[in-house]
Design a protein around this nucleic acid. Structure first.
Lengths: 327, 327
DNA sequence: TTCTATTGTGTAACCGATTACACAAACATA
DNA sequence: TATGTTTGTGTAATCGGTTACACAATAGAA
């Protein structure tokens, strides 16, 4: 890789002039500019970001913290973030945290060591150690002063419950996501409100993690605790599908004997039959908008709102029964 | 963030001594070492990787090139890579290439600009521009001199075809993956060998991409071209599930009227019912082993084999009929 | 014409680490 | 005791950029 010195030499100017051409800063004569551009072309020069980053104390790298990239919600989010970030001249350092606080801390340290320009975080407490590094929370909201892109979990919980309530549920079970996930509580509250309003009884089933490895166990437990469930509001699509599978396996007809609604609208939720009805979360958008917001912060551009709320949406497929009118 | 200078001052030594303590290099007196360690502790100092990287012309970052992170094969691979790399003190820069050659080139440039230590690539031609940067190909094999971790696609193709051939297929259709994906051809060859040996007729159906967005279109085309297919060897799980869904929707019984086998064993392939029979690719392992191999190259450690081949495995679920013996 | 403002360019310090080299002290060996 | 080796430490150069500052040349204003 050629350096700025070599370019300067070939162009017959000083490194300062080359740098000015590169950054379009300060005054550069037409003559010099041309010579420098030619030299750059000839040497196929492109500046070393490490050197730049050292001086500026700020790199073109953005840290992306994910709870678990194997959870199908996050690749989509990552893709959105990557697209946005890439368009704006940044790149992502991937921090897969596996719901492990230590690993999260470790990554925040690594980020700092690399003069990261900002952090996109879909995990809990990332804000602590970072001093002057902008951070945007994705999906999960920490506190109200922080930047965040998220969805209305309360509304999502309501939508799911509403869809269920409209379909003559007999034995409702609401799966509640892990306590540490702030959204879980909101969703639950939304669902409960609807069921209370409609005067429909419900049971709760607490899941302890969103990790893909734990589904089998959880599903087994679910059927043990709620063998007569006829209407399930699941905490995400993975659990919904897992329950659906187990149900079909047991010869329970979906949706006649057991109807179910998921949460997220994972890409593969429409690949099953019966297709999973679910609350669609705009994972890609969350990543994309979050990255845009972060880049605006990084570059001190005016930011309209610190918090962007994206809508969720009911997606009806075959896992819910026909809607009962006049209720 | 404290610097090495501040540590030196607090400890009453020179920066060189601090550096020696940090890197356990050269001679350091017991007295000095203790003072430095105390200062480090007191200032919560950790070295700036950017400065280190500038001098060494080599960072602790590894580039990860993926064709499409939304394709569920790759998050798993990424997770494996991340786990390994992280254990060895490196971090990943995510390069999601979207099957776009330009974006790939762009990322390779970005990687160079960041003094990347090495590249893990699951995309085609990444080797061109890199001069002295080690690269390990994941899943896809380019040429025989290159480092790679991959599976035996030929064998995979055979396994899939064998499973099918053992189950009294009447109308076989083999879905062939995109031509650009080297493995596709191998798998096809493996499958064809089996069907030829068994004297079973088959049709081919060419898919043009592995991108998640294109499934609907492809499945529609598939049923138009092969309405009477009774045994499908799919090019991956996503297509297999998509076809299964469409079939069930059309009232075609799985597996009695149409049996199907996928490829990959995605996490959600076991969440459907009927569960998808498939050829399991060790995506996580590919990433993990690939990252280990790369790190060994980077650190000039002895490498036993340039190419690691991992086994694939037939996973039987409900999408295939019962095996017919005595054939 | 003279003075100031604008334009153009180079020199050198700087970012925060690593390390070659010089030098001194302590130790071992002859 | 003289000499060589090992140990310990600091100074300064270096990595590849950016930019403050100095200075010169030119243009414009008075």
């Amino acid at each position: 890789m050629a350096t700025i010195k070599e370019v300067a030499k070939l162009a017959g100017v000083s490194v300062a002039t080359v740098s000015r051409v590169l950054n379009d800063s300060g005054y550069v004569g037409a003559e010099s500019r041309k010579k420098v551009e030619q030299a750059i072309e000839e040497l196929e020069f492109y500046p070393n970001e490490v050197a730049r980053s050292l001086f500026q104390k700020k790199s073109k790298l953005i840290g992306l913290l994910l709870p678990d990239i194997a959870n199908p919600f996050f690749p989509l989010l990552a893709k959105g973030a990557e697209d946005a970030v890439n368009q704006l001249g940044y790149s992502l350092i991937l921090g897969n945290v596996q719901d492990d606080v230590e690993k999260e801390e470790e990554y925040l340290k690594i980020f700092e060591q690399n003069n990261i320009a900002g952090v996109l975080s879909a995990v809990q407490g990332s804000s602590k150690r970072l001093k002057n590094i902008p951070l945007v929370n994705l999906d999960r909201v920490e506190s109200f002063e922080q930047y965040a892109v998220h969805t209305n979990d309360y509304q999502g919980g309501m939508l799911a419950a509403q869809a269920m309530a409209d379909r003559d549920p007999k034995q409702v079970v609401i799966m509640v996501g892990p306590k540490e996930v702030p959204g879980s509580f909101e969703r639950l509250a939304g669902s409960i409100q609807i069921f209370k309003e409609r005067d429909i009884a419900y049971h709760l089933f607490q899941t302890t993690s969103f990790r893909l490895e734990d589904t089998d166990e959880t599903v087994e437990l679910f059927f043990k605790e709620h063998p007569n469930a006829d209407s399930v509001v699941a905490s995400n699509d993975v659990y919904a599908l897992a329950i659906m599978r187990e149900a079909v396996k047991r010869g329970i007809n979906i949706p006649d004997e057991l109807q179910i609604i998921g949460y997220d609208d994972m890409p593969f939720s429409r690949l099953t039959y019966p297709g999973l009805s679910t609350i669609a979360q705009p994972a890609y958008e969350i990543g994309y908008k979050g990255a845009q917001l972060l880049c605006n912060c990084i570059e001190n551009k005016p930011v309209k709102t610190k918090r962007i709320q994206l809508p969720v949406e009911l997606v009806l497929r075959e896992s819910l029964r026909e809607k009962v009118e006049h209720e």
